[in-house]
Simulated assay, not measured.
Amino acid sequence: MKNILLQHQEYPLIASPQLAKELGTAAATFLQKLHFLISETRKYKQKKNLTVHQNRKWWFHTFEEWQSTLGLFSVSTIKRAVAKLKELGLIEINKLSKIKSMRVNYYTINYKKLKQLFNIGISQPTKKDPGTPPPAEPIKGTNTPIHPAATKEDLSVFHSDYRSLYLQLRQYKLDIAHNDPRLHQWLNKTRKIITYTASAPTRLNVNRWQWHTPEQILPTEFLRGTDHGY
């Protein structure tokens, strides 16, 4: 029987369970693999795919090469994953080839945005600095929502996009009324709002089983109905 376990030069496809839950398996796996390629290239045979631009490492792959590298996903699935990561600001794409006729994409990770969205990679201080202010009070949720769920009659009159956004936010324990005017303002940034809401337990260390208001877990820019680059 053929051995299907990892061979010496093979790279295991892994992704953070947290990222897979928030971003989907394809996007999380793509992000993990890209991190491996730009951080462990000295051990990797395709060093020619790496370049340095503005003191940052960038990796080149065609979508067909990504499909071969990742192994599990179709080109169309990878393209959707890349589009999602780019929209969230987690990756950056640039055409860096010195050969003008080669309009190929190089990819890198925006680690600052990764920390901002998911609190990943933020090291905790080992010593308490007496000159720093005390930590903020923990955000306390409620076991039951203040705003009751919309009735079937309420849901029936909603636009489908509005209804979908409302139901997903409630699924992630966002305590918001079905007629909150901010829901209309968020329709053009649905994915970002859902990502911030879903990642609140990790970003803010709140209880994922409790209900929290928008004011407790969303950035001020969203509460005002503006974007400012998020």
Rank of each mutant, 00 (worst) to 15 (best):
Y11P: 02
A28F: 01
D180Y: 05
P201M: 06
K115T: 14
E215T: 12
T62I: 02
L223D: 13
I120T: 14
R191G: 02
R208P: 06
S74V: 00
R203A: 15
F30Y: 09
R208N: 06
K45S: 12
N143Y: 06
D161S: 14
N94R: 14
P17L: 05
W66T: 02
T151P: 07
T226M: 09
D227L: 08
D227H: 09
P138K: 15
K43L: 10
M1A: 13
P219R: 01
N205T: 09
H53T: 03
T144C: 11
N143P: 15
G24P: 02
Y172M: 04
K95Y: 08
P125L: 05
G225Q: 14
M102W: 03
E87W: 04
I146Y: 11
L117W: 00
H8F: 12
E40C: 12
S160F: 08
N94G: 07
A15K: 00
Q9R: 14
N207D: 15
A177K: 01
T108S: 15
P181D: 07
L169I: 07
V82W: 00
Q54E: 10
I193W: 02
I78A: 02
T144H: 12
K127A: 15
K128W: 11
N207H: 12
Y166P: 09
N207P: 04
I78F: 01
T190V: 01
G24T: 01
K173H: 15
P201H: 05
E22L: 01
L167I: 13
E40Y: 13
N179H: 14
A81G: 10
L169S: 03
I78P: 00
H35K: 08
W58L: 00
Y44Q: 15
W58D: 11
Q46W: 03
T41R: 12
Y106F: 15
T108G: 05
M1C: 08
N110F: 01
V75G: 03
E22W: 00
Q46N: 09
N55C: 04
I120F: 06
I146G: 07
G141V: 04
